[in-house]
Structures are given as structure tokens and as C-alpha cells.
Design a protein around this nucleic acid. Structure first.
Lengths: 227, 227
DNA sequence: AGCAAAGGTTAAAAAAATGTAAAAATGCGA
DNA sequence: TCGCATTTTTACATTTTTTTAACCTTTGCT
């Protein structure tokens, strides 16, 4: 599922330029044109990274930075005016993760975005491989191996199984699964989940008695492990 | 194994401060108090990163930077005086990897050190030659040898194959490939990748059953090796 | 038991992704 | 600048996945 970037910037030329590059790079982008809207957009959009101009209408970048930091450890990159070294210090004290001076090189900015995201990922490493009794899921190679045999599996099924198995015994509602596997912008029928579960069960049937895809009646599904 | 940092700095207050923080961060630290000693210390210490002041006794930072660059691609971070933007230009032309202006925030400097080290790790480690069963790719000479026969291949195809084969079994999305092979600033259609894959497949068809270019439906492509 | 709501199953429709060929554009050396 | 090789775009056919919708079965409750 793609990452989200919130751009807080009043100059629409800069903002659209960034939208272009980040969009191409696989980000979902939202633009907040002033400091007042930034906070509401942040809550709504739940971005993975924030690009934050300092000179903003309504509420300045420092304030926005502090507001966001008070509720989230999301990486923040400040866009500062050239040569303002005091901004730099200020920004790092406010909890920003990095800063770039305007006019900035887009290439450099993109590199820094990837850098802060990598840094966060390194802090909370997302394991892309799972291994249970007779079940191996590898989301790097997109391979599902059941009882030693490689099973050809469509991507949605794979991601669904991976998501469930990542939190064994935890129940997910259909809507949670649609949000977390299909993406927050998916608006289809929740029965879709049932169909995918059924297809997964066919592939996994009778392989192991240590785990299974279990229906929790009236709630949702879970990857149940016994022991 | 811990990394080594060489600090070339005549102000012992700054140097010791850096030793303290870098030491805490797991670096082995050596301090060269002037440009003359820097080169000898460099040869002796073989650091993984160099922090280089510009204003130095005996021999200035530019000269030291050039000397080091002539013998090594080690990351160099320049410590420049405040506001001297010409230093920045100069430094990057001399082959420095980054710069920070004094007075600097230690937290920031540490972050930048990690950044340049990551960058080097990402750039360098790739062997420019690859060899799988009946397949030899050499990106130094741009030669592709399949089953002992040299196959005339355009550069983009070669780079694409090389990139895929460099991480066998890992799936790359089309956008990843465009970023990593074509460059982050490429804005073309992702179907371009498909066309290159097809041409590569023509050239590689039926050569070996130990590997192939595999489509991962809904995700991307991978260089799959069986074993 | 009987009812309503939830879940299972299935097949067909719809949507999305890919393979392929050919045309168009680009870049580069003669 | 021309001509050629490479790269990119476009269009269309084909394949595969995903979604929808219908119908059937199970569950929980009175």
C-alpha cells in the first residue's frame, strides 16, 4: 500500500511540483495551503511524511510542527528560506527530522524523504516474511509456500493472508481489512473479503492443524494459531 | 564491526565534542589537528567517513579534500563557516559529499553522517558483473553473454536485466524500476518496462531453466532463480 | 421450530494488468 | 542534416484478477 505525503505550502507552484514528483514516486499526496488547514488535513490524511514550509499564512511552520509532534512521530521535513541557519536549529529543536533550504533541488529533497522514511523503517522494521508451521509467506518475492509447495496466488489474497497472519489471533473486521489491505480509499462491498477468504481457505485447506483462517461470527476473521 | 570517523579539525573543543558524540554513536574516532597530518592519518586509519574543517593550519580543507579524493571515494563532510555559500559549491565540486555550516547542531551532523554512509552503501556495493548459469552480464563493458554467445543488447535492456538480476527473486514494481534504472526524474509511461522485458525475454528464451524473468501479476517483475 | 441476520459458495460480469506488434519519437554519429 | 539504432508510445488482444450478485447454509435468538 502506497505511502502518503502531506505538503504544507502556500506557493501552489512549489506544491504542485512536489505533487508531480512524489505522485510519480508512488506517494499519495495532499496539499494544505496554510497552517490552519494543516492540522485538520493531518488528522484526516494520516500521512507517512510531512513537508512543511515555515512561512505560512494563518499559522507558521513552527507552530504546525509543534502541533504535529505533540500527537505523532511522523517524519517532518522543513522547507526553510535560504541561509536562515537559525531556522535550522529551531526546526531540529521543534522535532523536525530534516530540513532543506529553498530554492531546493528536487532530487535532493526526494533523496531526503527516502532517507527519513528509511530511518523510520529501520526503527520499526517491517518484516516482510512470515513463517508458520508448513506456511511461508514472502512479500519480497511474492511467494506463498504451503507444505513445501509453491502456490500461485493473486496479490490481494497474498496481502490479505499476510496481514492476518502478521497479527495472529487478532480479529479484524471486514472494514478494517478493507482499510488496511485494500486501502483507505476503497469503497466496495465488504463481502469482497469473504470471497477472498474462501479462496485462501481452498489453498490452505487441511495443511496444518496448528493454524487456520477462522470466522468470528458477527465480527470478522482472524488467523488463529493453537498452542 | 564499528565504523571509523576521521575528524580533521584544529579547534580541539569542537574536535573533542565530536569525539564524544560519535563515540557514543559507536564510531571509532581519530582526530587530525591540521591538514598536514590529515593525509598520514587517513592512510593509517582508513576511515569510513571524514569530517573536514576548511580553515586548517598547514594545508587547507580544499587541498585535503582533493588529496583524499584522489585516492578514495570515502564520504567527506565539510565543516564550513556560516553563510559561505561559495564554500558549498566549491566543496561539492571538490568531491565532498555534504557540508554543514558552523556553528552546527550535533544531532544534525550525526544525521548527515548516517545519510552519507547509507548513500555510499546504496551506491557502491553493487558488483558490476554478474554470473548465473549460462548468463554473464558485465556493466563495465556493457556486454551480455548468453550460453557462451555474445548478444548485442541496447544499454537500457542491459541495465534493466542487471538491476533485476542483482536482487534475484525480489519483485520490483514498474515504478521502482523506472526510478532505479531510468532515474527518479523520468516521467514516461510504465508500460515502457513491459516492452523492455519482452525484448529481453526474446534474447534469453530457453537458455536456462535455473532462472527466468518472471511476471508477478499485479505487482511487477523479478529475476527468479530456482534451486 | 421459525425467523432474521451473518456467513459460505458459486458463477458471471467488470475491471485491471499484461503481452505484443507496430508506429512515433528520440538521440547520435557520419 | 540525414540515416540508423534505440527508446517510447500507442493500440489492441488476451489473460487474470477482482467484484458483484444471487442463492444457499449456518447461527443466535425467541
Amino acid at each position: 500500500m502506497s505511502k502518503r505525503a502531506l505538503i504544507v505550502e502556500d506557493d501552489s507552484n512549489i506544491a504542485e511540483l512536489l505533487r508531480l514528483y512524489l505522485g510519480k514516486d508512488g506517494f499519495e499526496v495532499m496539499i494544505a495551503p496554510d497552517g490552519g488547514k494543516a492540522e485538520a488535513d493531518f488528522d484526516l490524511f494520516q500521512p507517512d511524511v510531512v513537508l512543511l514550509d515555515i512561512m505560512l499564512p494563518v499559522k507558521d511552520g513552527w507552530q504546525v510542527c509543534r502541533d504535529i509532534r505533540s500527537k505523532s512521530m511522523v517524519p517532518i521535513i522543513m522547507l526553510t528560506a535560504k541561509g536562515e541557519t537559525s531556522d535550522k536549529i529551531n526546526g531540529l529543536e521543534m522535532g523536525a527530522d530534516d530540513y532543506v533550504t529553498k530554492p531546493f533541488d528536487v532530487k535532493e529533497l526526494i533523496a531526503r524523504i527516502h532517507a527519513v522514511l528509511r530511518r523510520k523503517d529501520a526503527d520499526a522494521p517491517v518484516e516482510k516474511k512470515l513463517n508458520y508451521d508448513k506456511l511461508v509467506i514472502n512479500l519480497d518475492s511474492y511467494e506463498l509456500v504451503v507444505d513445501g509447495k509453491k502456490i500461485d496466488t493473486p496479490p490481494k489474497e497474498m496481502e490479505l493472508l499476510f496481514h492476518l497472519a502478521s497479527s495472529p489471533n487478532r480479529v479484524f473486521t471486514r472494514n478494517q481489512l478493507l482499510d488496511e489491505v485494500w486501502g483507505f480509499d476503497y469503497f466496495g462491498d465488504s463481502r469482497t473479503v469473504d470471497v477472498h477468504i474462501k479462496r485462501l481457505r481452498e489453498k490452505l485447506e487441511g495443511v496444518s492443524d496448528k493454524w487456520c483462517l477462522k470466522t468470528v461470527w458477527g465480527v470478522g476473521y482472524k488467523f488463529e494459531v493453537t498452542e
